[in-house]
Design a protein around this nucleic acid. Structure first.
Lengths: 186, 186, 186, 186
DNA sequence: AATGAATGAGGTTTCATTCAT
DNA sequence: GATGAATGAAACCTCATTCAT
């Protein structure tokens, strides 16, 4: 594949941010990995923050879109949740690198990014809650969304630790958790 | 109270790290908040990393100690878990600032800190799993510990968003979640 | 002449090191004399040590090359020695500034530089000894090389003291000394 | 032996300056080696320069005194020179550490010390020349003093390189050199 | 569009010196 | 005399960003 200069930069940045973190990744690292000149970076991005935000927004929007469609899908909560969790895991697994940036790096950069993170995670939790509130009361929906989102993040975290955890193994663990939750809420 | 110079620096660092994050906190900020000279910092700490690590190790050890004692306490899982979760919330709530550093900042600094974070979170999850495995099989314990720890982190995260969330409100949410889980695992 | 930025820095460093010595020369002095920005220095050199070493290696290699060719030149010792000493004085006189750095500064910097100095002076003494050992026995060659090298350094030192000592006056003193030595070794 | 605080500091400084050089030796090194407090240093010495100068002056004065007495001793040049060189080697060998500071470090510190060095070496060379001018004409005396002093410094330098060179071995080399010079000047 | 040398603000770190006890 | 914690000036070094080509 023959990537455009901008895509080469985005790809290089994605890998480096997820490997080394925001602050340890230098513009010079990005351009050298992308094999372009230092100045070329600034043709496409205003700053390091800028390229980082573009990556963040991309992963977040994709995840939100995939989850949002379950707001309208009909079925029993168990089935919908199972599908939703599968979709979440698939999306996150596919974009492990970006997800790591999103879930792991955003909080530690500066106040602006911290606000962004809070906003974006709240968005995700809100989508979950909206879906759940079709079946449960307000308070239960809130607790359940925290329970599920927290579990998914923890699962993803475990996936980072045990590098060889496969998507199927994650799904299996998720089914067990969903089963417990499902039986619990009856 | 009349703090020692070292404690003045630790206290200033704690506040600044939790407010502005690791990278946005400059050593010059710390010494100016602690009202000591620039060079004084280096009498007590080798570097910014050093003072940060000292803070991290402190919060982690305290949390681990409080949780570990439940390994030996007898009772039914519901009771033990409730006590443990209360203790976790109390400890974390008491040290909100340090906890925010621990859960929010550590991943985004550098590879060394990332490894430390993984190690320390795994430690906590392991303690949880040890307690649970007295009552449940291996796989259930693993899933349950992820479920609970994930939920607690999510709860704590919500506490950061809605600044006025009280400890009692957090506990109430935790009881609901524990109830769901408890009914689910039967 | 239009020097490259690197050469501007080397030239400025050479002058400053020989005037003020290694430790009194600040990187800020070098860049300000070279009329480039502070950061520019670090594009070309890792540190102050680095630029210093590059200068040292240059002067040493040039001197060694000029002396080494006398290993193969045929003639009687008196003639060879005279030519060699002339060459030494010319080279050193031409690069008075660098030579002063080499002979005067290297010992006083740190252990690493001290080792380098010992190695490099030994190299020079060895070349002298190799040339002499074609005519004299082992022990005489060793003593003679120390005698000649010591004298040349002392002469160079006198040149530094009496700023107006010309190359020809140094040569004249050298001839006298060589005469004494030549008559003495018969 | 029970050294006074001042002597403990001088002794520690002597060792450290000769091992690590002037700039690499920190006041904190000196006081810690002398086992006194940081502030104690300033009771006895105005500054780092001050203690260094006191050491330098000591070695220089002792050397000068030992050499000066040969101005008045009668005898043939060969005998006088031999005794003088022996005395020089003994003095320098005895105070190897200080001598290394004197001959090796002084030039590389700053302009003030450079002037001092030039002055002090010239003093030594002058004493030599005064002694020699009782037997030889002006120009020969100048060359001879440079020849002898240069050789002695070179010999001392070799002693630093080959750590196990004994005083007797140095003397033996000196006799050979003096013999050559003696035969040469006739 | 692409280059990459040059910039300099802004941080970290060192260490000789002071001073209250 | 002796202490040693505190000081802060002065150095070093990094790296996001600019700009002439």
């Amino acid at each position: 594949m023959n990537l455009s200069t901008k895509d080469k930069l985005l790809e290089a940045a994605k890998q480096l941010f997820s490997e080394k973190g925001y602050h340890e990744t230098k513009i010079s690292d990005i351009v050298s990995k992308a094999q372009v000149a230092q100045g070329t970076f600034y043709i496409y991005f205003k700053s390091k923050e800028d390229i980082f935000l573009q990556l963040i927004k991309k992963i977040h929007q994709e995840l939100l879109d995939r989850l949002s469609k379950y707001k309208e899908i009909s079925g029993n909560p168990q089935t919908i949740l199972t599908m939703l969790v599968e979709e979440f895991l698939e999306e996150v697994y596919k974009n492990r690198e970006l997800a790591q940036i999103f879930f792991g790096q955003l909080l530690g950069i500066n106040e602006e990014f911290r606000q962004l993170y809070i906003k974006k995670i709240s968005d995700i939790q809100q989508v979950l809650k909206d879906i759940l509130s079709r079946f449960y009361d307000e308070e239960s929906s809130a607790v359940l969304s925290a329970l599920i989102l927290g579990f998914l993040r923890q699962l993803f975290f475990n996936c980072l630790i045990e590098k060889n955890l496969t998507l199927d193994q994650m799904k299996r663990k998720a089914y067990i958790a969903l089963n417990i939750i499902d039986r619990g809420v009856c």
